[in-house]
Design a protein around this nucleic acid. Structure first.
Lengths: 170, 170
DNA sequence: AGAAAATAGTTGTACATTACAACCATGCAT
DNA sequence: ATGCATGGTTGTAATGTACAACTATTTTCT
């Protein structure tokens, strides 16, 4: 059986659409609680399970740019769920540690997330579960490891976004 | 074999983390071209394949709030990739139609996306492919159909959001 | 030792995605 | 009619995100 490429492309488009919707859904406030967003929960989780971490470590946990990490962490520090510590071996680095309050909050939020996770789990036939997880992981990895700079994109200097035009006259 | 809940919850957390990253990745500019974003591509696709559509129809295609639809469509109209038409049977409704320019752009972007899709497809073992797609769909649907308002969330009035503070660590 | 390069982190800026609430115009039902 | 429902836009704002510029420190190489 030969799969026609364009049909398959469309299948992937639909899947990715669903994927984006699901991702959106998972980050909704209603999934969490205590005023903690998904990213913040990930940070708390990393700190709670791995102990003291540097900002750099968080970059890879969150897979975001360093400036983004700074901004994601900020509200946690303001709320004193996380605290900053100077690293003595390197004055540039900053360690983060979860505070006792942070730990409490983390546990509550973990509770919320567990409810959510259990509901989802309940909707996946038990027999399929392991396979489904594995399959999902395969696809997600495939997506993430695709470094696609689309070939028709040689020079996006005059990209039109939201009606605002920039002309590069050289 | 009994699956321990908390382990399984963690498994789902990791999966969802990956999911969000993948979704983010898929919407990157590098996947598309012609200055069209993922959502805009979806709109063009819907119009190209289904012909004239009302804003309302797009709400469900995109699964977003109506105000969001308005804003997503706007740049396409400004760039004249899509045009608005009054519906005569209902003066409130507005029909959208893809323009010839829009169709051209759509085809180019579809090309970009095809490249992307093919790269991904190449990374999923052929035997697994059908199963993987199905499994993914199962999980995504499970997620989307989970109406989780977490029970510890009676009143999130005192939420602290991204304030602006300068760090002072001494 | 001193200059150059690399690394850690913050801030400025900007954009994408998204929602809720308020609003306007039109259509429908009682 | 009058009032509720529907389709759409605008105001406002939160969240996530990146890139570039900058500071401060550390490392590396001459």
């Amino acid at each position: 059986m030969h799969t026609e490429p364009s049909t398959d492309t469309r299948k992937l488009l639909l899947l990715i659409t669903d994927l984006c919707q699901a991702a959106r859904f998972c980050r909704q406030d209603s999934v969490f609680c205590e005023g903690v967003t998904f990213s913040q929960f990930l940070i708390l989780d990393a700190l709670a399970t791995q102990g003291r971490l540097k900002m750099t470590d968080l970059h890879s946990v969150l897979a975001v740019e360093k400036s983004t990490t700074t901004r994601l962490v900020r509200p946690l520090i303001e709320r004193e769920l996380v605290q900053r510590e100077k690293a003595d071996h390197d004055l540039r680095a900053i360690y983060l540690r979860i505070t006792p309050t942070g730990k409490e909050t983390y546990q509550k939020v973990w509770g919320c997330f567990t409810e959510f996770a259990e509901t989802i789990r309940g909707k996946i036939p038990e027999d399929d579960r392991t396979d489904a997880y594995r399959a999902l992981k395969t696809i997600l990895d495939a997506i993430r490891n695709t470094s696609s700079v689309c070939s028709c994109n040689p020079n996006d200097s005059m990209k039109l976004k939201n009606g605002k035009t920039e002309f590069n006259i050289t």
